[in-house]
Design a protein around this nucleic acid. Structure first.
Lengths: 235, 235
DNA sequence: CGTAGCATTGATCCCTGTCAAAGATAGTGG
DNA sequence: CCACTATCTTTGACAGGGATCAATGCTACG
């Protein structure tokens, strides 16, 4: 696991007004005049799998908008075990807690090569004072995080391992039907579902044998959605 | 379970500027002139145990500041089972999601007689436009909810039932050391820990026999904190 | 006094954690 | 080119924990 920044490639300075995913990102409906307020540059950074955006406990300097790729938020328990509490994808924001003056709550680790915009705390705070439009965006991000946290609890931490896994596949398949679902190893899978990695492996194997999923390549799955629905509901 | 409002006793119209827990509540650092902006009254409502503040799926009209008592947020799964995703106590806010135009995500049920301030959505939105101080407060509330959600996942939904129960007692005892911990039945206990109610009952019984807790009256416990710490860590 | 609701306890089965070993796969260096 | 290692996945065996079904206490209340 690499340290923050060591393998972050700086792609350039963000030009929000011409952002390709403008309607998704935090600064999406700011105007040019809003950006005149800030003079700190916003860096676009690319991270490779395994890279760490930030670690739990660090004093937070920045938030990160995820432009592409996949990032996991990991929380470590006193006894050493770890749990993945959230997955961040295109449009999500990592590190919101710095806006209330807290250190980072989680460790953010890249699972699939990710492009991000690093937004210094001062920039967000400054813009936030001036433009009410940003407030709405910020609240939406808080809401999304909270919503996902609740879903994670009720769907991925409740019921048998079979049901949890089925619900995870369904969730990951949801936003790209017919797109293959990408995972990142059985260990992480277990950490998402709150089960041991052997159980995760066994359950995936069972799904493969039953034809609920097909592993086209390592950690690349195509899913039989209706079959998985049935498992998620009836066990 | 009673329907929203049926047994809500209206205590009067809130006067935030003289609020007894002003430093805790959402509107705590607003000034009189801020309130001049609104003309909709803020009601103070008292709810009895079992009363429902709102139900999942309803179009949200208001948020609720909890002034005293205890409220659970419940989420129902497609298969009918239910899970308690959060507990709200003095100073917490229920129903933040209405601020981003969403219907209520959970059903909010009173566990211990609760006094609340009902804040109509329009009031919060109006004030939010005018005063940046409220923004900071709102973000703190989002943060608190998110933080509690993450804690809930890692502490109360991970590990054996014994550890989960120990951690729950510790969490509830945390803000009132030497104060007895109040619960609300084994069914709810199970729904918080993600275990069956029989398991919850058995585990509580075991803790009582071991002297980790003493049930002074039904659902009223005093705790041996150090002993519970040990259980939470070492199993 | 009987009933309704909740808590406790028992019995049983299955799931999952755990320890352990045996396949895969990719990368390294001889 | 192939052995060799490191890493990850799969599978096995087994014990323990929790779910589930069911019966029995317990308390409050009509």
């Amino acid at each position: 696991m690499h340290r923050n920044g060591i393998d972050a490639a700086r792609l350039g300075t963000a030009r929000c007004s011409s952002c390709a995913i403008r309607d998704l990102v935090l600064f999406g409906d700011l105007r040019d005049q809003d950006f005149d307020l800030i003079h700190i540059p916003i860096d676009e950074l690319r991270f490779q799998p395994g890279a760490v955006l930030y670690s739990a406990g660090e004093e937070g300097g920045s938030l990160y908008t995820i432009r592409s790729g996949l990032v996991k938020l990991v929380q470590f328990l006193p006894d050493g075990t770890q749990r993945i509490v959230r997955l961040l994808r295109r449009g999500a924001v990592a590190g919101l807690e710095v806006l209330v003056g807290k250190p980072y709550e989680h460790t953010a680790v890249v699972l699939q090569e990710a492009e991000t915009c690093r937004l210094p705390r001062a920039v967000v705070e400054r813009l936030s004072k001036e433009t009410p439009r940003l407030h709405a965006r910020l609240m939406e991000r808080w809401y999304q995080s909270l919503h996902q946290a609740d879903e994670w609890l009720t769907e991925l931490s409740t019921g048998s391992a079979r049901r949890r896994l089925a619900r995870l596949f369904l969730k990951l398949a949801a936003d790209g039907p017919d797109e293959p679902v990408l995972l990142s190893g059985r260990e992480d899978l277990g950490a998402m579902l709150g089960v041991g990695m052997e159980t995760a492996s066994r359950t995936v194997a069972e799904f493969k044998r039953a034809g609920f999923v097909v592993e086209q390549a390592p950690n690349v799955f195509t899913c039989d959605l209706p079959a998985l629905e049935a498992v998620a509901l009836d066990g």
